[in-house]
Amino acid sequence: MTDIRALEADIAQAADSGAPGRSAWYRLEPAILGTASIAVLLVLWEVLPRLITMSAGTKLFFTTPTQIAGTLWRLFATGTIWTPLGVSASGFALGLGLSIVVGLPLGVLIGRSRTLNAMLDPFITAFNATPRLVFLPLLMLWFGLGLEMKIVIVFIGALFPILINTYEGVRNADKTLINVVRSFGASEWDVARLVVVPNAMPYIVAGLRLAIGRAVLGVVVAEFFGSESGLGVMMVQAAGRYQVDVVFSGLIVFAALSLAMTAMVQVLESRLSRWRPQRAGGE
């Protein structure tokens, strides 16, 4: 009896005194460890080449973080990067935009109409099962090496995640809620606007996240294998001239673009899910 009491008191005390300090560390731990490991890696990368003697030939293939930072700065300061960046970004944005404009309504339509679904399903299944990049040679033939080809390759890459996710979300719509709006005389358009699309929004956002990845991939591959200009072209040409720092600069810009887009989707997601119960530990 006394033992249990003592034990309970101990636990209570431990929980009391330990909790606040632990929770602050607990919250910050991942961020601190993440930043620290990046910092360690960068320092090692910077220092090691200075400690190891390499032949001039080997040195050709390496660069250091400070060198990359300098090159990035130069590329932006002199403005050399703006043209290729603009080309890549337009291909990405236009292709992705087009895939949203087409994929979202089409996903809603095939989700709502059995007829359309039966008609289009074979195409969608076949297209989706094929790696979209195998169309690249054809697209280069048909659309050339300019912006149009890039838009099309991005479009067909990003279309299916959006289309298929929208479709799944639409199929998942709550029948009762559809009846609710119908009972107020809602048209099929009202049903889509008021119930089906809001209900599918989490699916659509997840599809968008996937689509962004596919879109970036589309831009990169199109530019690696045959384009007139773009960040990828800049990287390939730099690699041919052993300008490893320029290659890394392109890589960093691509990574930054992807991260920025993902962050935008996250903002969109949290704005769209204000009506949801907050998960434990969420914002």
């Binding site: 009762t176 009846n179 609710v180 009972s183 107020f184 008021l194 809001p198 209900n199 949801r276």
Partner: peptide, 12 residues
């Protein structure tokens, strides 16, 4: 107009 069993409120 109907009052629904599981309320039928649009959660958003």
């Amino acid at each position: 107009a109907m009052v629904f069993q599981e309320f039928g409120l649009l959660p958003w």
